[in-house]
């Protein structure tokens, strides 16, 4: 049966199946990762067939569409539960993310290790010659330290431990998608009014830990991929946008 359905993937990609078959194929795709991969690749080829049918639409269509859009509400995004079975990270630029609020003090350090898998990163930072190491320790051990994290687009994770009383945070960026040497990840503090750069990671690096002094009204901490050395304004979409506990 499933082999039968499988042979329909090509016809499905061309919308050349009936409604029943379409349902069967799409059900099959949720259960078969390699089939979903093939289906996705065929779709990417199929849409290019429309390269040869481009045609200028009537000018009035633009006005009608834009007018209808103005009075049309957008659908709510699909929110995936943090506990749900592992899925590829979804990236919709909305503040929807699994958030952890964890208890305090030393627990925060353990939490970072547990949730970000970054204990090694942290250990590297421990040497006392790093002047920020003590500040990081202070944040992690602050009584009001809270942890939030997000799976990054393309892999890896961004974890933030923030202390409101200290107005400081530690951001741990771990194992983001590899970038070439002419690209850098950049971290941003975003609030109601705008954003500022919190730092640019070394070109080609996909992991780093940083200490942030002066959180202010920061709502979320975002990470973007930029040309090496960073940009004045973030290139969207963000790779991750971790909302800070309110």
């Amino acid at each position: 049966m499933s082999t039968e359905v499988h042979t329909l993937i090509g016809a499905w990609a061309l919308d050349a199946v009936d409604a029943d078959e379409r349902r069967q194929v799409e059900e099959h795709l949720t259960e078969c990762a390699s089939c979903a991969q093939e289906a996705g690749e065929l779709r990417e080829a199929v849409w290019r067939l429309s390269d040869v049918t481009l045609a200028e639409p009537p000018a009035a269509l633009r006005e009608r569409v834009l007018a209808e859009v103005r009075r049309t509400r957008q659908e709510a995004p699909l929110v995936s539960e943090p506990e749900a079975a592992p899925k590829p990270a979804r990236r919709v630029p909305r503040l929807r993310l699994p958030r952890l609020r964890l208890a305090v003090g030393a627990a925060a350090l353990a939490a970072v290790a547990a949730f970000a898998g970054v204990f090694a990163t942290w250990a590297v930072l421990r040497p006392e010659e790093s002047p920020t190491a003590d500040r990081m320790t202070a944040v992690l051990e602050a009584p009001d330290a809270e942890v939030a994290y997000q799976e990054a687009d393309g892999g890896g994770r961004v974890t933030v431990v923030a202390s409101e009383s200290l107005d400081e945070a530690v951001v741990v960026v771990s194992d983001l998608a590899a970038v070439d040497d002419d690209r850098s990840y950049q971290v941003w503090l975003v609030d109601e009014a705008g954003q500022e750069s919190a730092g640019v990671m070394d070109a080609g690096d996909s992991s780093a830990t940083m200490w942030i002094d002066g959180l202010g009204d920061t709502d979320l901490i975002g990470v973007t991929e930029e040309p090496a050395g960073g940009s004045a304004a973030p290139t969207l979409p963000m790779v991750a946008d971790v909302a800070l506990p309110a």
Binding site: S197, G199, V200, D202, A208, M210, A232, A233, P234, T235
Partner: peptide
């Protein structure tokens, strides 16, 4: 690990507007 030399820049840049480049 981080370029901390950038220092605190002026806050209040325009709200997350896309960089006006081809990308």
């Amino acid at each position: 690990m981080f370029d901390t030399g950038a220092g605190p820049g002026p806050r209040r840049e325009p709200r997350l507007t896309a960089v006006p480049d081809a990308g």
